[in-house]
């Protein structure tokens, strides 16, 4: 910090800018007042109110169904894809194609899927949201696992294959264990992404099964309530915990 010189100014500004809004939300979620702006004393009543809110509870259940399902599918497909791309293709174009769903703007993917589901006659429901979340989730898992494969050396697998083990045996005995941390980290990331994803869910969901972000969206449109503050604080806690665990499992930032 000390030797940053004048760079301290933007440095401190950035972190204040990133965290003050979050901090304000969390503090206000413990506010006794009904006004979300004026602090009148400590209370956990909004958390209680939250748990009694039927809409939010249903939204949470819907979100969990999608997030768990999408995580399982995306992790399996993404891991296989990463191995296939970095071990059997070694082509920059195939790799870029595999990661494209993570870069394409969510709105474009959302309307494309809406049009596609309408065309092939898939009824919009939690299942169509799940199918959509798997596409970009898979790309994120693949990205994390590809980065990990880049750090490990392939001679173990080659040795295993030289010794007569087939592709599948080699995968089960050698590849999978060495990639486990990256796979778990990737799964955790997909889970948070799916948990928080709004735009694609908004377009590909049926009208009767809103996910939590869709519930939040409709609440926020109507204005500010202390209940949302409490919900925000909880969601922040969940995301922070998951992302920090993922970071500790594989040093994600080393892949920069």
């Amino acid at each position: 910090m000390r030797n940053l010189g004048w760079l301290r100014v933007p440095f401190i500004f950035t972190y204040a800018f990133l965290y003050i809004p979050i901090a304000v939300l969390v503090v206000m979620s413990f506010n006794a007042s009904k006004s979300p702006f004026v602090w009148t004393g400590f209370s956990t009543q909004w958390y209680t109110a939250l748990f009694n809110n039927e809409l939010i509870r249903q939204g949470f259940i819907n979100t969990m169904i999608v997030a768990v399902g999408a995580t399982i599918l995306a992790t399996i497909l993404g891991t296989l894809l990463a191995i296939g791309v970095s071990r059997y293709f070694r082509s920059a174009i195939v790799e870029a194609y595999s990661l494209a769903p993570a870069i394409i703007p969510d709105l474009v993917l959302a309307i494309g899927l809406l049009a596609f589901f309408a065309l092939v006659g898939v009824t919009l429901s939690l299942f169509s949201v799940l199918l959509a979340h798997v596409v970009f989730g898979m790309a994120f898992v693949a990205a994390v696992v590809i980065a990990r494969i880049g750090q490990t050396d392939s001679s173990l697998e080659e040795a295993s294959r030289d010794l007569g083990a087939g592709v599948v045996t080699t995968f089960r005995k050698i590849t999978l264990p060495s990639l486990a941390p990256a796979i778990i980290a990737g799964a955790l990331l997909v889970f948070t992404l799916s948990l928080d994803e709004f735009v694609i869910a908004y377009f590909t969901n049926g009208p009767t099964t809103p996910t939590l972000p869709i519930v939040i969206y409709s609440m926020v449109r109507f204005g500010v309530t202390p209940e949302i503050n409490a919900l925000a604080a909880l969601l922040l806690l969940v995301s922070f915990t998951i992302v920090i665990s993922a970071q500790r499992i594989t040093r994600l930032t080393d892949a920069v």
């Binding site: 928080d196 969206y217 919900l231 969601l235 995301s239």
Partner: peptide, 14 residues
């Protein structure tokens, strides 16, 4: 990595 709506909502409050 946190909820995008929540982060936007924070600015409504601020």
């Amino acid at each position: 990595w946190t909820n995008f709506l929540i982060r936007t909502y924070a600015w409504i409050v601020l």
